[in-house]
Amino acid sequence: MNFWDKISSLDRRWIYLLVAIAVILPLIFPADFPVRITPEATQLYEAIEALPDSSVVLLTFDYYPSSTAETEPMSFAALHQLFRKDCRVFTMTTIPLGGPSIAERVTRTVAQEYGKQYGIDFVNLGYKANYVAVLKGMGTSIEAIYPTDNSGTPLAQLPMMQNIRNYKDVSFIFAVADNAIVEYWISIVNAQYGTPIGAGVTAVSAPKYYSFVSSGQMTGLLGGMKGAAEYEQLVSKPAIAMKGMGIQSLIHLLIIGLVLVGNIGYFFGKKKGTRGISV
C-alpha cells in the first residue's frame, strides 16, 4: 500500500474531525465576509419594495425545524422588510410539525420590534391538513378554509382579516419552504389566480426553481443560507445567516479539498476499485 492508497482509505473519523473543526473555528474566530447579491434575490427584494405601503402579504412557514438554519433567517429578514413598509402580514403553514409554533415565535419577535399589533398588523392562521385543497380553497374563501386563526379566534373578530377574502386581496405571497410546496404555490395560486410569488428555499431545492423565475411564474428566489445572507444584507439587518457564511465557506472549501485529495489518491493509488465503501 503506497502513500496515495493510504490517503484513499483514510479513516472517516479524521474527516468528521476536520468537519467539526471547520464548523467550530468560525464560531470562535468570527469574521465578516462580503456577500455578493444574486439577481434573483434582488428581484425578490425589489418586488416587495415596489408594493404600496400597507399592502396585504401572505408569508408562509412551510419548513420543518430541521432546516431552520437555512430558512428561518429568510423569514426574519422578510418580516423586517414587510413591517418596515407597514405591510399587513398574515402567515400560514402546510407543515404540521412545528410550522404554527415557528410562525408564531418568529412573527411575534419581529412584530415587537416594530410595535405591530396582532389582529391589526399581522395574523397567524396556523396549519390545515391537505395542502392542495388548502391552497386551492383559499382562492375562493380564506375564511372557509381557516374559520379561526391559530389560537382559535374567529377570523371575523380580527380587524385585519375582515377585508381579506381570498387571493384577490393579497398583493404578494412570500413562500419560505424546505420542500416541494413552492411548486404548488406556483401551479395552483400563481397560475390560476395570478398572485405574484417569491420564494426562499433550501440550497438543495433551489436549482429547480430557476426555471420558474426565468418564466416569470416566480418573482425572485433565495437559495439556502447564502440566499438568506443576501436578503439580510438587502434589508440591512445582518444576522445569523451572515454569521453562518464563514462556517459554510470553510465547509464548502473543505469538501472541495477532500474531493480533490480523494481523486488524486484514486489516480495515483494502486487500488482503483473502491465500490461498496462505507461513508
Partner: peptide, 27 residues
C-alpha cells in the same frame, strides 16, 4: 426537545456528505 433533535439529525448530514464526497466522488 423535538426541534433540537431534528436540527441535530439534519446537521449530522454535513459529516456524512463530507465523508461520502471524499470516498465516492471520483472522476
Amino acid at each position: 426537545v423535538d426541534s433540537i433533535m431534528m436540527q441535530t439529525m439534519f446537521g449530522l448530514l454535513a459529516f456524512y456528505i463530507a465523508s461520502a464526497a471524499y470516498r465516492a466522488f471520483r472522476a
